[in-house]
Write a protein that binds this DNA or RNA. Structure first.
Length: 881
RNA sequence: GGGCGCUUAGCUCAGCGGGAGAGCGCUUCCCUUACAAGGAAGAUGUCACAGGUUCAAAUCCUGUAGCGCCUACCA
């Protein structure tokens, strides 16, 4: 064993190389083509507070491969880049950092607070973009978008006003999801149901001040102050007698009536349910139907308000619950409690328990928009890949609720609604327009104030594919690149984002936002756990890049995409990709060392059987590669690149041409050198979208391209090949024979260094081919001689069978051929299995009648071949016994 | 509760109607001047289970079991 330190470093080291080419690779390249053909993507904008994680890396690598592939096709390509202002997340983050500086945001004016946030944004907002740049993405880096930029804000206002004018945006006082920690309304999507173990409590409520009582069960005793009724099911015989009777609430002396409603479930709890319409969505509906009043018992911060007895005021709901329970016990109203599993609504950003609260908020009526969106997907105007995601999309769209879009925070697009003192309002882009509109609508000029709230961040994200292109202005970009070609994103934001983009786009532009939605999966750790800071299992892509190189990371991601399962990342996941880069690096070194040819002079003639073979294999690669990428099958394209290069170009082609290079230069040899260079160069073109850094470096080291300031810019043409079939078959003879000899050598424990005599027995055509290329066989199998076996010769043999004939070596006394006998027996067994299967099929009339002719022919050939091989192998075994 | 997906080699996953595949790991041999991050030769599977459709099923259909994800107001 040599020590590692003794060996000069031959491995590919990506670091300097990637630095060297980064600028060139990310430099956006404008193709000025008059063709209407285009390829455009709008990136899922990362949060401005974001930090690069593997999800971004996967998502952008997929997009970049598609973009670079289309650039190779010389198609006019646009990939917009930018960030999302991430309203709540950003505001929270800046709040916290101000808190550290002892600045209390409660005492800041809106303007001052906003200034602080902008300051933060200007200092830190490019971090995620700088990190993304390191991946070598071909985005339009010179036109970075931000959802709060003037143009995009203009789109938001325009969208709001148009939807408002169509009556699709409206204001309503209703129950909303209220985050008491953030003190804002949030949409139903931002509420996460968490399963928790809680208790169900049973209480007595006395009827009409008698001794009769009804038992009511609840998980939220603290809401007793908001109760307005007790509901029972119409079919509930047990409780029916209480109908219409009055119950005096023991807590605030409010009279509760016992009402009948289908909502009450006989099987749940006691069958009687208290109705708290101020803080429960179901109860709210019941109350509406029965014209019940509504009591709000909570302050905006979630504590109990002045509608509850003084002792309970300003308590948190949790404290209030304990206190109510105590009181219940004191009053002898407490019956029992039961452990149950319950789902608790929590805020996705704050983690706080979400309270239904009665509030005035802005909503989008999305019902009709959702219907149109479903239609667009159903009739194929938009296609999901993989298709099964369409079901998820339909399911949500079909039960979609009005979208609450107003948020009581300051970082975001301020709602373009202007109020008069008497609460009349108009929607307008600015104060002047508002005044004009107000005058037209109400006939008077008054002072107006803009709504204090801002819009849900997803409202602006929903416009992203066209707002980034300049909509509503009739810009060149919008005309040229919209609808975008494809959206690449994770399944986790199908509802948040994809669905809303489709709805907004159809409503506002009358076009789909993209033709295809490509949904990819998540990256998890090796135990298949989600990566999260709390688990501490987050892998930083930048760490992977410094350890393995960007190209390795990209190639790893590209080759591990899987429609059905998440990508699992472990310690050595990137090794295969790194090894592949190293292989490419070293093979290129070989090409370089053997490229003493004049490239300009050499005319490529595909002549020798191995040149024909490798170019034929390349053509196959090329056609698969193209069809895979046209279908967004990135992982399959990566697979064929890998196996072409490693298994075919390196393991066979290079090994063979080495042998001819060791001879004195002939025309054939310099021709082969040209082919070798050409195949490598064409391969690099195809590799470029996957591994841009190493591709460009090798291209320039080998002087494949005179102008080093250029990207790769071609999809290579296939080779024109003559006599392909015959020569490919010859190549197969060579391969099979070599493998058979090596196998024999191994089974007989003949050292690799020992030259041996070898024999073959095959058809006249194959014989002719072998005789023409003796040295290839001698060198590749390390033989002393390779001769045609003559039955009359008096040599004893040990043999292997190949698809083209028999390969044998001389039997010697020292050979222990037990292993070889075992191998031949194994071959025999599998041949017999094939034989029996084929025989059975061909004796089956159903098969002969129903199967396609080509399958039947194939089966006959298979049977014949297996018969022949079985005979051969039995002979070979006889020789050894 | 509703929906979706998965179950194939020791591990991670392709294949999705006509001969069971890849990468890693494993066994044996080899530092052969492109590459030991390498080369060569190998071993390894009732394709979850049960029915059905078909001349033919890992592949299509139905059911069962287990796993995962999404979704839902359970007082």
């Amino acid at each position: 064993m040599a020590h590692e330190t003794d060996i000069p470093n031959k491995a590919y080291s990506p670091k300097e190389i990637e630095q060297k080419w980064l600028d060139l690779i990310i430099k956006s390249k404008k193709i000025t083509s008059t063709s209407k053909n285009y390829f455009s993507i709008s990136i899922p904008p990362p949060n401005v507070t974001g930090n690069l994680h593997l999800g971004h890396a996967l998502n952008t690598t997929i997009q970049d491969i598609l973009v670079k592939y289309n650039m190779l096709k010389k198609i006019d390509t646009l990939w917009t880049i930018g960030t999302d202002h991430a309203g709540i997340a950003t505001q929270l983050l800046v709040e916290r950092s101000l808190d550290l500086k002892k600045i209390n945001t409660k005492f800041l004016s809106r303007e001052d607070f906003l200034n602080y946030i902008w300051e933060w944004k200007n200092e830190n907002g490019d971090k995620i973009l700088d990190q993304l740049r390191r991946l070598g993405l071909s985005c339009s880096w010179d036109h970075i978008k931000f959802t709060l930029d003037e143009n995009l804000s203009n789109s938001v206002n325009e969208a709001f006003i148009r939807l408002f004018d169509k009556g699709l945006i409206y204001r309503e006082k209703t129950l909303v999801n209220w985050d008491p920690k953030l003190k804002t309304a949030i949409s139903d999507l931002e509420v996460i149901s968490k399963n928790k173990k809680t208790k169900l409590y049973y209480f007595k409520y006395f009827v009409d001040n008698t001794n009769e009582f009804i038992i009511v069960s609840t998980t939220r005793p603290e809401t007793v102050f908001g109760d307005v009724a007790i509901a029972i099911n119409p079919k509930d015989k047990k409780n029916k007698k209480y109908l219409g009777r009055k119950i005096l609430s023991p807590f605030n002396n409010i009279e509760l009536s016992v009402i009948e409603d289908e909502y009450a479930d006989i099987k749940k709890g006691s069958g009687a349910v208290k109705i708290t319409p101020g803080h429960d969505f179901n109860d709210y509906k019941v109350a509406k139907n029965h014209n019940l009043e509504l009591i709000n018992i909570l302050n905006d911060d979630g504590t109990l308000n002045t509608n509850v007895p003084p002792d309970f005021q300003n308590l948190s709901t949790i404290d209030a619950r304990d206190k109510v329970l105590d009181l219940m016990k004191q009053l002898n109203l407490y019956v029992e409690e039961e452990d149950i599993h319950n789902t608790i609504p929590t805020g996705d950003r704050s983690g706080a328990i979400i309270e239904p609260m009665l509030k005035d908020q802005w909503f989008v009526n999305v019902k009709e928009m959702a219907y149109k969106s479903v239609k667009a997907v159903r009739n194929g105007d938009i296609v999901f890949k993989p298709k099964f995601w369409e079901n998820t999309f339909f399911e949500w769209m079909e039960k979609i609720q009005p979208w609450c879009i107003s948020r009581q925070i300051i970082w975001g697009h301020r709602i373009p609604i202007w109020y008069s003192d008497d609460n009349k309002f108009v929607a307008a882009k600015n104060i002047n327009e508002a005044k004009e509109k107000f005058k037209i609508k109400y006939g008077k000029e008054v002072s107006l104030k803009q709504d204090e709230d801002v819009l849900d961040t997803w409202f602006s994200s929903g416009l992203w594919p066209f707002s980034t292109l300049g909509w509503p202005e009739d810009t060149q970009d919008f005309r040229k690149y919209f609808p975008t070609s494809i959206l690449v994103t994770g399944f986790d934001i199908i509802f948040f984002w994809v669905a809303r983009m489709i709805m907004m786009s159809l409503e506002l532009t009358n076009q789909v936002p993209f033709a295809t939605v490509y949904i990819h999966n998540l990256i998890r750790d090796e135990k298949s756990q989600k990566m999260s800071k709390t688990r501490g299992n987050v892998v930083d892509p930048l760490d992977l890049i410094s350890e393995f190189g960007t190209d390795s990371l990209r190639f790893f991601l590209a080759s591990n995409i899987s429609p059905h399962s998440d990508i699992k990342l472990s310690q050595n996941s990137l090794e295969p990709s790194r090894n592949f880069m190293n292989k490419i690096w070293n093979a290129s070194k070989f090409v370089q060392m053997n490229s003493n040819i004049d490239r300009k002079k050499s005319i490529i003639k595909v002549d020798t059987f191995y040149d024909i073979w490798i170019t034929s294999r390349f053509n196959e690669l090329l056609s698969k590669y193209k069809s895979f990428l046209e279908n967004c099958e990135v992982e399959k394209a990566a697979y064929v690149l890998y196996h072409f290069f490693w298994d075919e170009f390196c393991d066979w082609y290079i090994e063979i041409i080495k042998i001819s290079f060791s001879k004195s230069e002939t025309d054939d040899i310099s021709n082969t050198k040209s082919i070798m260079n050409s195949v490598l160069y064409k391969f690099l073109n195809l590799l470029y979208p996957f591994a841009p850094f190493i591709s460009i470096e090798i291209r320039n080291q080998l002087n494949f391209h005179q102008d080093t300031s250029l990207h790769f810019s071609d999809i290579p043409k296939p080779y024109e090949i003559k006599n392909e079939a015959k020569n490919v078959k010859h190549f197969k003879i060579l391969q099979d024979s070599i493998i058979a000899i090596r196998s024999l050598r191994k089974n007989l424990s003949i050292p690799p260094g020992e030259k041996i005599n070898c024999y073959y027995k095959t058809s006249p055509q194959s014989t002719k081919f072998i005789e023409k290329n003796p040295d290839l066989f001698l060198k590749l199998a390390n033989l002393k001689s390779f001769k045609k076996f003559d039955d009359t010769s008096n040599v004893q043999l040990i043999s292997n069978i190949t698809s083209y004939g028999i390969i044998s070596i001389e039997k010697k006394i020292e050979h222990d051929y037990i292993i070889q006998i075992k191998k031949l027996n194994k071959d025999l067994l599998s041949l017999q299995n094939i034989h029996d299967q084929s025989n059975k099929k061909l004796n089956n009339k159903g098969f002969l009648n129903s199967a396609p002719q080509e399958i039947v022919t194939k089966e006959k050939d298979r049977l014949d071949k297996s018969k022949e091989d079985i005979n051969q192998i039995q002979n070979l075994l006889n020789q050894l016994s």
